[in-house]
Nucleic acid binder design. Structure first.
Length: 287
DNA sequence: GCGCAGGGGGTCG
DNA sequence: CGACCCCCTGCG
């Protein structure tokens, strides 16, 4: 594939570090010059901010401008979203200032499902390691600037792995979950298309939860990070902590019920809850 | 330096 | 509610 280049100008809401470090993705790595290189679908891209320009370079499956517009959600007006959220309260206003360049990537559904099943009771360095090993073994190689990159394995490739094969990648107890979920798709008990076409958030969540290894939190991440459901509010330890500290003020944050937090998020942030979650998460975890 | 607990972006039974 | 694989990290 031929190398391409695309430059995005005058974009106020685009900071590579915010985008790649706000917890939505696992396959972007920082280079020595401060740029980021990552792989998604059959594209390998390097993203660099120079002055106010965003420079995208790499090998793409298609036209780089179209690929970037889709993946980096460039048709969504984040200035408008930030303005709306900033009006809600000072906390949100501050966290948005802190993570002003966050954007929600439009990630591949299959990759997101598998990646977030792996994320359960796990830490980021290990999650990244597992995904890299898995891609190297079951994905396709793409060479960019003399380095090898491996695509995220599709369900047919991953379907060739036994539970033992998966365990060997360091998946731990998640091996069986990945195996079973892959089987469910291969056996057409459920399809990516029906998930992509499901408009109703609650129905979609119910369908996702039928997958092995997908509970409420993982389902919400899948919906927010690959199905553009900006109204969902994934609750992990950090979000629970920040919501308790800001609004609920219970002594023991673990006593705060998920339902209470969900209702609060719905009431305060409504259809932008997912975005609010990202700004708060990034701000709190970094602080 | 190295060895050893502690705990991690939850889910399941 | 407790167990769960396995590293990754941090302290001794």
């Amino acid at each position: 594939m031929e190398e391409q280049r695309y430059i995005l100008k005058n974009c106020n809401s685009f900071e590579p570090v915010h985008i790649f470090d706000c917890g939505q993705c696992f396959r972007w790595n920082r280079e020595e010059d401060g740029s980021y290189t990552g792989i998604f679908k059959n594209n390998v891209l390097n993203v660099k901010k120079e002055n106010e320009d965003i420079i995208f370079e790499g090998v793409c499956d298609g036209d780089i401008e179209e690929v970037c517009k889709e993946y980096f959600d460039l048709n969504t007006d984040y200035e408008e979203i930030k303005a709306k959220l900033s009006n809600i309260d000072e906390y949100l206003k501050n966290s948005i200032e802190y993570g002003k360049g966050i954007r929600i990537l439009n990630q591949d559904l299959w990759e997101t499902i598998i990646s977030f099943i792996i994320s359960a009771n796990n830490n980021i360095p290990r999650i990244k390691g597992i995904i890299e090993r898995k891609s190297k073994k079951y994905g396709n190689k793409i060479i960019y600037k003399g380095k090898n990159y491996y695509t995220f394995p599709d369900m047919n490739s991953l379907g060739k792995a036994s539970v033992e094969d998966l365990r060997a990648l360091g998946l731990g107890f998640r091996d069986k979950r990945i195996y079973e979920t892959t089987r469910m798709f291969l056996d057409k008990e459920i399809t990516l298309e029906e998930l992509e076409n499901e408009k109703d958030t609650d129905t979609l969540r119910e369908k996702l939860i039928t997958l092995s290894g997908v509970g409420g939190k993982v389902a919400d991440c899948i919906m927010l990070f690959s199905l553009k459901k900006f109204d969902v509010f994934p609750i992990d330890v950090w979000v629970r902590r920040v919501m308790n500290e800001l609004y609920i003020k219970e002594d023991d944050e673990n006593k705060v019920s998920k339902t209470l937090i969900q209702n609060l998020a719905k009431e305060k942030y409504n259809d932008l809850a997912g975005l609010a979650q990202q700004y708060l998460f990034y701000w709190k975890r970094d602080a």
